[in-house]
Structures are given as C-alpha cells and as structure tokens.
Design a protein around this nucleic acid. Structure first.
Length: 812
RNA sequence: GCGGGCGUGGCGGAACGGUAGACGCUCCGGCCUUAGGAGCCGGUGGGCCUCACGGCCCGUGGGGGUUCGAAUCCCUCCGCCCGCACCA
C-alpha cells in the first residue's frame, strides 16, 4: 500500500464541492430556535486580485464564523463588493475599458479566491454595490435623507483634488493631500451635496460607550468629532455697527483679550477694511493666503503672519477697543472664523502678539512663564480679581448671557459630509434641476436612476456624466417641464454605509429591506476589518443607522456591536507594495501549499490584531504541521478500527494523551474567545506532537481521539484538513458537530509540579499531590535537596504558598 | 506639540503579579534510506563549575520604585510605530 500523502490539491476542492452541494453556509430568515450571530468582514474593494491582507481578514472572520456555528449559533456570514470608485475609473481612463468590465474581472478573481480559500460564505446573499438592484436603494436612502433635511446642497469652500478632478470629503484629505493620489488639494467655492452628520455629533460621541470596540478606535472617533465646550462671545464693531461672535473655550480669559483676528476667508474682511488706509495691504494679504496650498498654510511652525484691518471691536466685558487683524492662522471652517486674541494664555496668540508688537496682559496667575494655559487666581479682571478662574468661568458666561453678549456653546471639529463627486463610476444622485421647480427629487417609483454608458471618462472639472446629453436632459417629475439631471455621483463611502443592512434581505425588490429581516439579524455581532477604516467608514455607517432609525426605517442605533481590527501583514518589516516588489501573492501560496496552509499560517504568525511579518520559511512549518496531522489521521483510519472506543478508565500513556487532548480543547476554546488564534494553533501543534510521541505506546482509542480532536479544533483555521481528517476517523461532518467540551476529570491531575523558590529565586521543582494542604506543601518545600542547601543555617522568616503552584521561602 | 501603542533568544512570537522564552522558523546531531531538500527522534538565550548527574551566575530597551516574588504594576529616560495637529 502506498504511503498516504497529504495532498491539498485533491482534498480542498473535494470538500468545497461538498459544502456547495449541501448549501452548508446558507441561512434563511425563517425563525429558528438557535440564537443568531452576524459575523461580517468589511467587504472588499474589487480592484485587481486579492492580496495577503484580504487573506488575513477573511481567515479571521471565517474562524469566528465557524466557531460560532459550532457553538450553536445560526450564523449569517455574507459577502459582497464595494464596486464603485476611482481606481476602476482611472483604469478606464488609461485603457478605455469600461469600469464595469474591469470591476467584473476583479470580482471574479475575488470569487475564485474566496472559494479556493474555502471561506464559509452564504453566496445567496451576494451583491456588488454597483448593481442597479443595489444602488436603487442607495438612491432611495439619499431621498429619505433629503426629505428629512439631512441631505442638502450648498456652496462652500471645499477641498478639490486637481489630479482626480473631484471634490473630497474632509476625511479624505490627509496632511493637505488627496488620500487616494497624494496630490495637494486646493480650495474651491462650489455648490455641493452634503449629509448633515454634524446633527449627530453628540450621539456619535455618546454611543461609543455602548459598543465593544478597541479603545484606540473609539479615541480616534472622539478626536475626529472633536467636541469642545465653551462660549460664544459677541464683539461689536462700533464704526460699522456689526456684531462679530467668536467661539472660545476660555471665557475666563476674556479680560486678557488684546486683539481680534479674522480668517482670510471671512466674508466681512473686505467690508471692514474698505475705506481704511489698510485696504490695499489687506487685499494683498488675503489673496496671497487664499492661493497658498492647504499644506503650506496648515504648517503650525511657520511664522504667524497677518495684517491689521484698520478697525476695532469692543470687548464686551470691559469695553476696551481691540484692533482687528486678518491672519491665516485663523480657520474659517472652525467656530465662527474669528477669534479673540489672548496672548498671555494661548501660544498661538502669544506668538502673533510678539511678531506684531501687541500688548500681552496676564489675567490668570498660573505660576508659570507666559504663555500659560494653567489654572490659578484671576488678575487684571475687574470684579473677578482674586477668584479662581475655574470658579469664575460659569459666572462670566452667565453674565454674558444676561447682557446679551454671549452664551454657553459647543463646537465640533466634525464637518458635514460632502458626498458629491464629479466622477463617472459612482451611484447617480437621484435629483433633477427644473427651471421652474428648482431641485426636484426623482420619485421613488422611478428609481433606480441608472448610470448611463459614456465614451469619455476623463475628468474635466465636471462630471463625465454631463456629456451624456440624452440622459441629462429629462422632464421635471413635478411640472413635466424641461429639467436636467444631477450629473455628480455619490462618494463610494455612501454605498458602503448600509450594505450590511442589505445582506439581511438582499433580493427584496419592493424595499431596501424588510424590517423583520433587519430586526432578525442586526446589529452585526462581530465586525472585522482594517484599522484604516477607523474613522471614515465606521463613522458614516453609524451615522446612517442613527438617521434611518430616527426615520423609523430601522431600530439599530449602532450597527457594529463588536469590532475587531486586524493588523497589517508586512514583509521584512515593510508594508507590502508592488513598487517595492515585496508582495506575497496569496494565490501562489495556496497553489503551492494549499489554502489551509495559507490561512493557518497567516493566523499562526502572530496576534491577529498586530502587524505581523510574513516569512517564506515559516509557511513551510505550518504546511508541515497540517501534513503531520493529516498523515496521523489517515494512518489511524487505515490501521485501527473505528469501533476501538476511547478507554473509559485510561491509564499510562492513554491517560497522558487524553489529558493533552482535553487540555487542548480547553486552551483552544479560551483562545478563540479572545481572538488569540496564534496560540490556539500552537495548542493544536502540541496535541499533534504528543500524539506522535505516544504513537507506539498509547492505544488506538486514545490516539484516534487525539487526532479527531486535533481535526475538530483546527477546523476553524484549516477547514479542509479538519473536515477530511475528521471524516476519515469518524465518518461524520465536523462542521455540523458541536464544538468539543473538555472533560473536567481529565483536566484535573492528581499531582502537579511544585515550584520552590528561596527569596523569589527558583531552587527546585518537585511533584506534589494535588490534594496537599499548604502546610504539607511547606514541609515538602523545606525538604527538597536543593532548597536545603539554600536555607541551611539561615532563618526562614516567611513562607508564601500559592496552592497548586509554588512555595516561596523567605530567608535571612 | 497632544493622544494611543510597542520594546522579550539569530528570527516570528509565548507567559491570570508566581517555573521567562510555549509553538514555529533557523541551525546542529541521530535514525531511516540507493539517495533525500521527504519522514521520524533529540538538542538549540549567554557565561561559568562538573568525567557525569547536576549546580551557580547573568538575562525581557536604560535607570529607579512597590512586592515574599515584576517581562507584567508605578515613576523616569531612550528608541520605534500609529492617530490628530494653528480646532481658538
């Protein structure tokens, strides 16, 4: 008989066919006695071929899905594609291939890989966000937001990427550059569509406390929302009779204000300067500031420039006249676009005052050098002198309120979400512009507004859709007069802000979802993805659910109950990238070693939430391990009898091996719960190693139990090997088997290794009965040979006993 | 600058405040073999003593502290990584 050989190329397709035939991973929306679990990995963006990061994400998610299933849950584990977006369109511009084509090819590559990896997906729920049957409902959601006043159109200074020729959301600008292409962004005044996410700032902040997410992700969201409490204070320009409110977090420093500054974009800058001798200077400064790149202007280290407007405003608390400046360190988009300058207690104002020779007046005695932001008694503050600033804070705000010169106020860093894009490959915005009726939503029954084909995708500063005249030109749904369609498309983040809802009811052609289906599955119990989505996607999806819940289309205030962010896979410590030529193609790995090896290795390599470094030699080790397990199972299946029962009262090596098996069950189960897949796989290694060591001495029953258990425990990571070995030994389908439970009798031992320390240093180890009392352990410890040598002639002043573990003798 | 994380053998990494280095890679040795880059078995942090059994010392980025006992907790310094950054 030929030596049995582990052959993943034969095993893997065979089991994949079984799962497909048996619809093993499909779940229905019909009631069921099992509790539900919705396990979801972030849907892939189909561009090119899947890379190693995808392998890791879906290996983590699949392990969790399998573990939940075998613990009695009905698991929803679907898949889709975030298919609209710039890369496909840029590819189209270069090659002329329609984005639909390149996207289709990429989706097929992903489908092939997911099947080849044996990921347990319910394929009946699959869709791409670019399919009209999906984006019809993206448009429907847009209309709901519009009706509710949460979608609106306004002209604003927006971030414009000159390379991609489109506007960007605030969140898509990193260090003044386009997140996608790295080009420096410009600021343009344009009319754009926004979603009013700022209405939800407080709830997005507060509800973070209700969800089980990594602390750093919550922190990032909190910082992004950037809530600050303070006061709005009104300064009046007496000459022109205009009030200028400012936002400050430090109303307690109002008496220290010595100047007033406006942002260059402030609409009143020219008005204030008009007619003063500063006018030409102001024009020159503002023009220069507005032309400066966002990056250069954002540099906090550059000198604080600015020019006076030749006007003054009055400080409401003391009637002082403060000179007004325009300076580019003040941002139009935060607060009111104007600030009071308190140089003694703000670093930036201090710097500005120094370069412009402005007065610096200390109003809080914080016991440090100026500028200081600490607390202390107030000085130079009229009636508040001597009071502690924190105490006086509220009184000052109340006083302002009474006088009508201000009130308590909260400001956010969060901006409304700019969702229109002047690009082709996206979801059309379902509105038309009518000469008579203005902006008119497309009636729901006319959805979807289908994305038309165009010849030329090249960006020209307006959407390529504008060239599709037949499509653009339409009639007004309201008055039947001539109208033109909106030619901008939606940010792709809109598409991915609700896909997890559609999985619950993917084929519904009467509604985006049926409430019962969504109520059944939502929220997602375990969400898995990269930390790079910590802000954008995760914040937008939360906003959508809250808005849709407010409109009573849902009852889901938080979509993702629990979040797991997995780390990157690097190589030689560096991020994999095509330009560096250090990529690992997951398809190559599964071709050479099998999908089980690829999946198992990427989890074994290190803790899944951390970055891990890929090593080609390491893969071989994992392959060796799976081959060892498979051969053990195959040999036992051929040479021993399935009827050979597990001994009821095991002895000798049978007992040793069964104990190891039950130890592994306990260890793997605990590790699965805390996502410690690397140590879980190590535990299965140990079990397999032990079985090999005892192959000659343990009985067939114990050996078979060890191999079965190893197969069962490894199944969430290496489903094909797990299923195959389990089937050979038991004839049963491991995925329908309950997750094993450790036998407490076999977990317990009647003796343990007692560690004996003298003064905290390990001096001996000895076998002690598990039943020994602390006094007996102390006695045993004192008798140990090597311990005696260390305590002879000295006084034992203290004995510490940790039952089941150690004794520490403290001597002097 | 602010916030968060990390620092353990040649490498990836283990370790409820209680045996530091599980498991894997690498390397070395043995067995098996016509052969083996397959497989099986064993060894592998550094230094020292011992023919040997075994024993001693050092060791988790540096320094200090808490504790019977610290990789783990606290303080401080150094280094690396991530996020935010003129947000008033």
């Amino acid at each position: 008989m030929a030596e049995p050989r582990y052959d993943p190329a034969e095993i893997e397709p065979r089991w994949q066919a079984v799962w497909e035939r048996e619809h093993a991973w499909e779940v229905s929306n019909e009631p069921d006695e099992r509790p539900k679990a919705y396990v979801l990995e972030m849907l892939p963006y189909p561009s090119g071929e899947p890379h190693i990061g995808h392998l890791k994400t879906y290996s983590v998610g699949d392990a969790i899905a399998h573990f939940r299933r075998r613990n009695g849950y009905r698991v929803l584990h679907p898949m889709g594609y975030d298919a609209f977006g710039l890369p496909a369109e840029n590819h189209a511009i270069k090659t002329g291939v329609h984005p639909r084509e390149s996207t289709r090819a990429s989706i097929e590559a992903f489908q092939r890989q997911f099947r080849a990896w044996g990921i347990s997906i319910d394929w009946t729920r699959e869709f791409g966000t670019h399919e009209p049957r999906y984006y019809r409902w993206t448009q429907w959601i847009f209309l709901q937001l519009l009706r509710r006043g949460l979608a609106y159109r306004r002209e604003a200074a927006v971030k414009w990427c000159p390379n991609d020729a489109t506007v960007l959301a605030n969140e898509q600008v990193i260090d003044g550059r386009c997140e996608r292409c790295g080009a420096e962004v410009e600021v343009r005044q344009l009319e754009q569509w926004f979603f009013r996410i700022t209405d939800y700032a407080d709830r997005l902040l507060d509800d973070l406390d209700t969800i089980d997410w990594p602390a750093h992700v919550k922190t990032m969201q909190r910082n992004w929302i950037g809530r600050s409490e303070g006061a709005e204070v009104v300064f009046r320009c007496e000459e022109l009779g205009i009030d200028y409110p400012v936002f400050t977090t430090r109303p307690d420093t109002l008496f220290g204000a010595t100047f007033f500054v406006m942002a260059p974009e402030h609409p009143d800058v020219f008005r204030l300067a008009a007619g003063t001798d500063r006018e030409p200077e102001v024009h020159e400064y503002v023009n220069h500031a507005l032309n400066e790149s966002a990056e250069a202007r954002g540099d906090a280290d550059k000198p604080k420039t600015g020019v006076p407007l030749g006007r003054t405003v009055t400080n409401p608390v003391n009637g002082e006249r403060l000179p007004v400046y325009v300076a580019d360190y003040v941002l139009m988009e935060y607060g009111t676009g104007a600030i009071m300058g308190v140089p003694a207690h703000d670093e930036r104002d201090f710097e500005f005052a120094r370069t412009h020779g402005l007065a610096i007046r200390q109003v809080i005695d914080c016991g440090e050098e100026l500028p200081c932001t600490g607390d202390g008694p107030m000085v130079n503050s009229g009636p508040f002198d001597g009071r502690h600033n924190r105490e006086a804070y509220d009184e000052i705000v109340q006083w302002l309120d009474r006088e009508g010169r201000g009130h308590a106020s909260v400001n956010y860093r969060l901006r409304d979400w700019l969702v229109s894009r002047q690009r082709y490959w996206g979801c059309p915005i379902p509105v038309v512009y009518c000469e008579r009726c203005g902006i008119v939503p497309v009636p729901e029954e006319d959805l979807p507004v289908v994305l038309p084909d165009v010849e030329d995708y090249a960006p020209k500063g307006r959407s390529p859709l504008a060239a599709a005249e037949d499509w653009v030109s339409t009639t007004c749904p309201s008055c039947d007069g001539p109208a033109r369609r909106e030619t901008d498309t939606m940010d792709t983040f809109v598409d991915s802000s609700w896909y997890f809802l559609r999985y619950c009811d993917p084929d519904n052609d009467r509604a985006a979802w049926d409430r019962a289906a969504v109520d059944l599955w939502m929220p997602v119990d375990q969400y898995i993805g990269g930390v790079e989505h910590a802000i954008l996607h995760l914040m937008y999806a939360r906003f959508f659910c809250k808005a849709l819940t407010d409109m009573e289309h849902l009852d889901v205030s938080e979509p993702f109950q629990s979040l797991f962010t997995q780390g990157m896979v690097t190589r030689a410590g560096a991020k994999m990238s095509k330009s560096k030529g250090n990529t690992v193609d997951p398809a190559d790995i599964s071709d050479r070693y099998g999908a089980d090896t690829a999946r198992c290795y990427v989890l074994f390599i290190g803790p899944p939430d951390q970055d891990v470094d890929w090593s080609d030699e390491g893969v071989e080790g994992t392959h060796r391990f799976l081959a060892r397990l498979w051969r053990l199972g195959a040999e036992l299946a051929e040479t021993t009898d399935a009827a050979g029962a597990v001994p009821a009262a095991p002895e000798g090596d049978d007992l040793v091996l069964l104990r190891k098996a039950h130890w592994a069950i306990e260890k793997v189960t605990g590790d699965m719960r805390r996502f410690a897949f690397n140590t879980a796989i190590s535990a299965v290694h140990e079990l397999v190693n032990e079985a090999y060591r005892l192959r000659g001495s343990a009985g067939a029953g114990a050996l078979r139990f060890a191999a079965e258990t190893a197969a069962s425990l490894v199944f969430p990571f290496a489903p094909h090997v797990g299923a195959d070995v389990y089937d050979r030994l038991t004839g049963r389908q491991v995925w329908t088997e309950r997750w094993p439970e450790a036998d407490p009798d076999l977990l317990a031992t009647d003796s343990f290794t007692l560690v004996v320390q003298v003064n905290g240093k390990v001096r001996d180890r000895l076998e002690a009965p598990a039943s020994a009392t602390p006094d007996e352990l102390k006695a045993l410890a004192r008798e140990a040979d090597n311990v005696r040598a260390h305590i002879d002639g000295r006084d034992v002043v203290k004995e510490v006993v940790v039952p089941g573990k150690l004794v520490n003798l403290v001597v002097r």
